[in-house]
Amino acid sequence: MGQITLNQITKSFGDVQVIPPLDLQIDDGEFVVFVGPSGCGKSTLLRLIAGLEDVSSGDINIDGRNATEVPPAKRGLAMVFQSYALYPHMSVRKNIAFPLRMAGIDKAAQDAKVAAAAKVLNLTDYLDRRPGQLSGGQRQRVAIGRAIVREPAAFLFDEPLSNLDAALRVNMRLEISELHQSLKTTMIYVTHDQVEAMTMADKIVVLHAGRIEQVGSPLELYHTPRNKFVAGFIGSPKMNFLSGRFATEFDAATIGVRPEHLTVSHSDGKWVGKVAVSEHLGSDTFLYVDMDGVDEPVTVRSTGEIGFRHGDTVHLTPTADKIHRFDNQDLRIA
């Protein structure tokens, strides 16, 4: 079981309220990702759930039990830290066994559980090494192993992949997803990387300045962002925002068009501009187009190779049903 309910929780450091009253329901077995720019309060929120910080007000319920006053050791949650936080003076075996040792489980049972976890995580050959002798990916797996053996109600991940290089990050992302498939335990995962959020989550929670901007499945957020912030944050490259005469035409204060929803032409289209930079990636081409009346260059994503160069005039046409409209409160107009 791993059902977590946050009830009107707030957190203040001194006079600064970093989390205004917040409600959230996390269902058993869900993979929930907290995503947002740095400083949005996502890590604080995770630490509140973990019990590493006190909530200033409100309740945290874990499996229907009020856990607000319960110390972290007793909440039955396991956490994987950004720095992995392995115990450098213990072997991999002892690292993984540490939670069991703290729980007073007998030696034989400890060994069996460690062996099982090591097998799942491909760590069997490394059990007698120290963390310092492992690669980044292996350390990450040890940290996960230490979390698994507790058989927690939920796993908490605090930006676990940010210290890994790009290739390894993709691998570990898959491993964590597979782990979730096989364990079916609730996972709460904090990241600032919207790609990780989109690829892993059952449910994404977008946070901004301590506030929940939107909760939903990855595709819900992509197709129907509730406001301009979510629209800009989810999707890569970022959505283009146009206002003024471009927006009034659509009866909105601002309109947003994703780079992949613009078609380009040499001769005719809805809008016209000049190519500032073109990036050729082989599979895709990104154009950054300067347009009159738009402050930032408009980004366009085209598949394959297209023949535009710096200084060329280009005509852009948005896909009609993919235009997002926002009012002067930055909220989505349905």
Partner: peptide, 8 residues
């Protein structure tokens, strides 16, 4: 950065 418990 701590809880009331650890501060005590």
């Amino acid at each position: 950065m701590a809880t009331q418990h650890s501060r005590a």
